[in-house]
C-alpha cells in the first residue's frame, strides 16, 4: 500500500475549506464510526463490564454488593468449577485431533474422479448444520437401548453402553459429536491448501525419490502451514467455546459431569435456581483469561504476518 501519509499534508493551493483540506485525515474515522460504535457497545465494553461485575454479589435485579475477590475465592472451593476446567482441557486436547483427521480426509479426497466435487461438499455437510441439530442427531445415535452406538457396543462388548448417561464417558460422547463438524472444517481448509501447493516442488521431490510419509512430512505439510495455522485457531477457539452441544445433549449432566466453563457460567448466571450474575461473571472472566492466552498468540501472529506482507 502506498497511501499518502496524513502526517505530511500535501500542499494543495486549490483546496480551500476545512473539509477539503482534512478530508483524508477524517475520512477513515467517519468510515469506521458506525461499525466501531456497535462493536464497542456490544463487544469491547461488555468485556470490562463483566470483569467489573465479577467483583459483586448480584442477582441481576436488586442492589449489587461489592465483595472484592469473594467470587474468585468461592471458585477455588467449587467442585463444579474444577470439573468444568478439567472438561475444558479434555475438549481442547481431543479437539486437536480434528486437525490431523481433517488433513487425512483432505488427502483422501484430493483426487479427480467422477463426482468428487459433490463428494467433497457432502463431506463438508456437518459444518453447515447447526450444532443443535448435530447434538440431536448424536443423542439419537447414542440413545440407550435402541441407539446405533448402544447396539454396536452391545455386539462388541456384550453390554450396551449408554454413553450420555455415564458420568465418566458422557463428555467423550459430546466431544465426538463436536469433532464431526470440526473435522469437516479442517478438511476444507486443507483441501484449499492442497489445491495451492506448488506442483513443481512435489514433482522435484518425487524425482528425488521422496514418497509416502517423507513426502507428506517434509514437502507437503510445510507448504500447508497457513492452513494448519487457521485450523489450529478455529479448533482451539471452537473447543473452548463449546456450549451448544453440552446444553443440547446432556444439559451439563449426568450429575454435572459434562459441564464446561461456558456452560457452568450460563447455569450460574441464569439458572432456575436463581441468578448469580457476579459468580457467573467470575467464571466468564476465568474462561476469558484462558482464551486470551491463545487469542493474543494468534492475533500477534496474524498481525505480524499482515505487516510483513
Amino acid at each position: 500500500m502506498s497511501a499518502v501519509d496524513p502526517a505530511v499534508p500535501r500542499v494543495e493551493p486549490y483546496q480551500p475549506g476545512f473539509w477539503r483540506q482534512n478530508q483524508r485525515r477524517l475520512a477513515p474515522w467517519l468510515f469506521l464510526a458506525p461499525g466501531m460504535l456497535m462493536f464497542l457497545v456490544y463487544v469491547i465494553i461488555p468485556i470490562f463490564q463483566s470483569i467489573w461485575i465479577s467483583f459483586y454479589d448480584w442477582d441481576g435485579l436488586g442492589e449489587a454488593i461489592w465483595i472484592g475477590i469473594g467470587n474468585y475465592v468461592e471458585l477455588l472451593d467449587d467442585e463444579a468449577f474444577y470439573t468444568s476446567i478439567y472438561n475444558n482441557i479434555l475438549w481442547l486436547l481431543l479437539y486437536l485431533l480434528a486437525i490431523p483427521a481433517g488433513l487425512a480426509i483432505a488427502i483422501f479426497l484430493n483426487q479427480t474422479v467422477f463426482g468428487i466435487r459433490l463428494v467433497k461438499s457432502l463431506f463438508f455437510f456437518p459444518f453447515v448444520i447447526s450444532q443443535v441439530v448435530v447434538g440431536l442427531m448424536f443423542s439419537w445415535f447414542y440413545a440407550p437401548e435402541f441407539g446405533l452406538f448402544y447396539q454396536l457396543s452391545e455386539v462388541l462388548t456384550g453390554k450396551g453402553i449408554a454413553i450420555l448417561a455415564d458420568e465418566n464417558l458422557a463428555t467423550f460422547g459430546i466431544i465426538a459429536a463436536g469433532l464431526w463438524p470440526q473435522i469437516a472444517y479442517c478438511m476444507i481448509l486443507y483441501l484449499t491448501g492442497l489445491n495451492n501447493i506448488n506442483p513443481e516442488q512435489i514433482e522435484a521431490a518425487r524425482m528425488d525419490g521422496a514418497k509416502g510419509w517423507s513426502m507428506l512430512w517434509r514437502i507437503v505439510v510445510p507448504q500447508l502451514r497457513p492452513a494448519t495455522f487457521i485450523a489450529l485457531v478455529v479448533t482451539v477457539i471452537g473447543a473452548l467455546r463449546s456450549f451448544d452441544l453440552v446444553s443440547i445433549m446432556t444439559d451439563g449432566g449426568p450429575y454435572g459431569a459434562t459441564r464446561v466453563l461456558s456452560f457452568y457460567m450460563y447455569e450460574q448466571a441464569l439458572s432456575e435456581y436463581g441468578y448469580r450474575m457476579g459468580y457467573g461473571a467470575a467464571i466468564a472472566t476465568v474462561l476469558f483469561i484462558i482464551m486470551m492466552v491463545f487469542i493474543s498468540f494468534f492475533v500477534v501472529r496474524l498481525v505480524t504476518r499482515e505487516r510483513s506482507g
Binding site: 463487544v43 469491547i44 463483566s50 467455546r241 466453563l261 450474575m277 466468564a284 487469542i295 492475533v299
Partner: peptide, 17 residues
Amino acid sequence: FLFVAGNFVPFQILMIP
C-alpha cells in the same frame, strides 16, 4: 487488532452486560 481479537472472545464474557 481490536476487531480481530474481539471476534475470538468467549460469548459468556459478553452475556450479562
